[in-house]
Structure formats: C-alpha cells, structure tokens
Computed example of a mutant assay.
Amino acid sequence: MATLAFEDIVEDFEFLEDWEDRYRHVIELGKAMPPLADALKVPATKVDGCASQVWLHPVIEDGAFSFDGESDAMIVRGLIAVLRALYNGLPVAQVPAVDAGRELARLGLHDHLSAQRSNGLRAMVERIRDVASEHA
C-alpha cells in the first residue's frame, strides 16, 4: 500500500548499505522539504510525545490526504519527509489502514533510532492516523 515516493526511499535505502549513509540520506530528505510557515506552528499542529519540537499540518483536498511538517531537529525533519512520502497523496480513507510500523521496518529505522526518536515517530504516525480517521 506504500506510495511510489515511499518505494523510491526504500530503493535508495537498499542501495545505501551503510547506516550512516542512510542517516545522512534521511537528513537530506528533510533539508529538501519546504519549511512550514511560522503561522502554522501553533499548539493545534504541535505533536506531543516528541523529544524535539514537531508540527504537522494536514491538508485534505478532494478526498486526498497530505501534510506538511517541521521540526527543530534535523533527523526528525527527515523522518517527517519519510512519513510524507508514505502518506501524502493517499485517499484519506486509506491512511488509517497503512501499516506504518511494517512499512518503516523496511527501512530498518527502529534498529537505529533512539527510544525517544522512536516514540516521537510513533506519536507522528498516531497524529496522522487520528486526523485521517476524523475526515474519512
């Protein structure tokens, strides 16, 4: 059920054998992401449960789900970019059905993220699922 954009990241990770290269790639994905407007960095878009500052701004247009995001931590910004690749463009009703844990496991992220980062990633996935469920 993963999007083509996410499959591209999976392919990149298969090519990059060393975890440090993969880590740098995640950071580069975050750097390439457009910044979130300051006006959208409000309590309603802030994600609780993350060690760093994280904001997710969902947009549902013509039944399709997407979101923009921002973090003050480079690796977390990269993780937001990975989640955008996983979810953006899906029909909103399909978003809660995505097995994010299984898809992200294909990248081996949990083996290399700290417990705090893993908890933050789960909190972001929960927020995405909750918002999509409200609009499905």
Score class of each variant (00 low, 15 high):
120 G>N: 10
78 G>P: 04
44 A>T: 04
54 V>N: 00
100 A>Q: 06
107 L>H: 06
68 D>P: 01
39 A>L: 14
115 A>V: 15
104 L>T: 03
18 D>H: 14
87 Y>K: 01
96 P>D: 12
105 A>K: 08
62 D>T: 07
70 E>R: 01
55 W>S: 01
107 L>F: 05
28 E>I: 07
105 A>W: 01
23 Y>P: 02
22 R>Q: 11
116 Q>V: 14
23 Y>L: 05
87 Y>T: 05
67 F>T: 01
28 E>F: 05
21 D>I: 12
15 F>G: 11
124 M>S: 03
67 F>M: 01
95 V>G: 05
19 W>N: 08
108 G>K: 08
29 L>N: 12
109 L>Y: 04
97 A>Y: 12
54 V>T: 03
53 Q>M: 02
120 G>D: 13
17 E>A: 14
7 E>T: 08
66 S>Q: 04
26 V>E: 06
6 F>P: 00
49 G>M: 06
49 G>I: 07
97 A>P: 10
102 R>M: 15
73 A>I: 02
55 W>L: 00
124 M>E: 05
12 D>F: 06
43 P>S: 05
37 A>S: 15
74 M>N: 02
103 E>M: 05
16 L>C: 13
50 C>E: 06
119 N>F: 10
102 R>V: 15
38 D>P: 08
61 E>S: 10
8 D>M: 06
10 V>W: 10
122 R>A: 15
53 Q>S: 03
109 L>R: 04
13 F>I: 07
22 R>D: 08
97 A>M: 13
17 E>F: 14
98 V>E: 07
100 A>G: 07
81 A>G: 11
124 M>F: 09
57 H>L: 03
69 G>I: 04
88 N>W: 13
